[in-house]
Write a protein that binds this DNA or RNA. Sequence first.
DNA 1: GCCAACGTTGGC
DNA 2: GCCAACGTTGGC
Length: 135
Amino acid sequence: MKYWLVKSEPFVYSFDQLLEDKITYWDGVRNYAARNNLRDMKKGDQLFFYHSNEGLEIVGIAEVVKESYQDPTTDNPNWVVVDVKPVSRLKRPVTLKEVKEEKSLADMELVINSRLSVQKVTKKQWDKIIKMSEK
DNA sequence: GCCAACGTTGGC
DNA sequence: GCCAACGTTGGC
């Protein structure tokens, strides 16, 4: 099982919205690096849900329920989506500031390449952030 | 195939 | 609202 982090602007699609919808397809990815990550996702993979622009924090966990398929919002075969469902809200959101301040997370893509909208997360990083959210 | 110009993203 | 960083486009 792999771990990922996906970003969304909360006023476009928030974690609350996902909780309400129960399931959604993750669309709007128009970047090749992010697309490649989407294609690598397998059923059961876990995702951190990050709010960009507003909030700037990891708010919850989602899970891949359907692997990548043609993005229904475009005819361009370059782009794909995956179906995701909410798993749980973090006990406490972990902010970008905290991630930056945590030395063991200095090599997270969130810190290094903040613009990438779908990022890989290592098990170590995942566990660390979970731990931080429980404090 | 290189690279300048341009557009977009996202933190501040 | 600004601007740095990055990705993409298109002329050569």
